[in-house]
Design a protein around this nucleic acid. Structure first.
Lengths: 223, 223
DNA sequence: AATCAAATTATGATGCATCATATTTGCTGC
DNA sequence: GCAGCAAATATGATGCATCATAATTTGATT
């Protein structure tokens, strides 16, 4: 894994490292069980340990990373119980986002969503799983942005941070029913039907995530 | 404000300082607009700046504190827009908690809730606003715990962290309709009626929080 | 060759020195 | 007396030395 800090510019180094690690989690470059070492990362990034420690502590706090023992920082494994809880929360929160977005969407917003869906369809036929995952995520967060709920965006971002390693791990094994459930959402959005949009995004989370749940249950019963 | 670290024991100093600052926010000892200085806090606590910096960065990240300029860390003011967004999120999430809690509550759980409500009634008649706020918070989080949703607990804790300074500021001016709306929640809990519990907690958040919204609107129009 | 203990190494925690810069203070000259 | 610039101060950011301890290696003993 290679990094380069020069291009990105943020308020402070710690935030930059934080963003880098977030992207690694969301895009599956950090797999569940992977261990992170502060000094090692600092050397790779060409900084001191301080900003790296800042970033890692922030991720540990929001449980995107876990300190198994005081000296052992790892990407945590998802449990079935945790996934079910996260799923219930997502249905409520992303339902709120979809409902609000449907009632506030401008034509330009609809167009933007359609573009994401269209590009996702292309990625699926091209078997580009990584791009498909990224566009799936873009779709969900576009709804939050159209709804104009920045605080909700932050909450959901932290939730997705925990699902990132899992989703990447599952979908690299094949599943691709990620896109189908977005079409009913689009239909509801075009009609400005908030209740229908909320139901559709709930169905996406439940049905589209079925593969994830099966994967977790298989792993947990196997050990 | 005086602190003492000796009694509490955590995994590391940064977490201890974090918890102290959280309590200060939740109990209104840190008012909106208050400025925090790393060195000053470190001296008060008898530690170096490192753990204090850790704690403050964590709070800044979750927006319980805000860095207005690179050298200026303050307790942020709530805006009306932000409060309305948080309120909508709370109705969804605390509704989920109440619904789940109502279907899972054991007799001992009901008793525990009744005790909190009873002590809150005593605090109200005694005009003890601080205790009333604390018990109000305990009631809401007891629902989450009874529901057995630890991940949701973390999300809601961070949300309450942002409301803490505001609630304390409003209720110190008098309002005390904080408790009335808990009785319908209790009624639904006793009947194991999840849907009714969710509606009742939503009503508590909307109606019980009316004073907060009025306070914010008055401040925002005044400047 | 196996085992256990001592030494070494690895690693996060903590403290602190220094830097860069924003703010405040104070002096100089008009 | 006031405008404006300079020095001093304050403060978060960064780097790094050191500490405590857990993991690993090594080596002596049986």
């Amino acid at each position: 894994m290679h990094y380069q800090l020069d291009t990105l510019e943020h308020d402070n180094l710690g935030s930059t490292v934080y963003q880098l690690l977030c992207n690694d989690l969301l895009q599956g470059r950090l797999q569940p069980g992977a261990r992170l070492k502060i000094r090692e990362l600092a050397e790779q990034l060409g900084t001191s340990v301080t900003p790296v420690r800042d970033a890692i502590l922030r991720l540990v706090q929001e449980q995107a990373l876990a300190m198994q023992s005081p000296r052992d920082i790892r990407v945590p494994y998802m449990t079935v119980e945790r996934y079910l809880e996260i799923r219930a929360i997502r249905i409520r929160l992303e339902g709120l986002a979809a409902e609000t977005a449907a009632t506030k969407a401008q034509p330009a917003d609809i167009t933007r969503l359609e573009e994401i869906v269209a590009r996702n369809a292309v990625a699926m036929t091209a078997q580009d799983i990584a791009l498909g995952c990224a566009l799936n995520q873009q779709f969900h967060f576009a709804l939050v942005d159209i709804a104009g709920l920045p605080f909700l965006h932050g909450i959901l971002y932290r939730i997705w941070l925990q699902m990132g390693p899992l989703i990447a791990a599952v979908y690299q094994q094949g599943g691709s029913a990620m896109l189908d459930y977005h079409y009913p959402v689009m239909a509801a959005m075009r009609q400005g039907d908030g209740a229908a949009a909320a139901l559709a995004i709930g169905d996406d989370i439940l049905s589209g995530g079925q593969a994830i749940l099966l994967h977790l249950q298989a792993r947990q019963s196997a050990g």
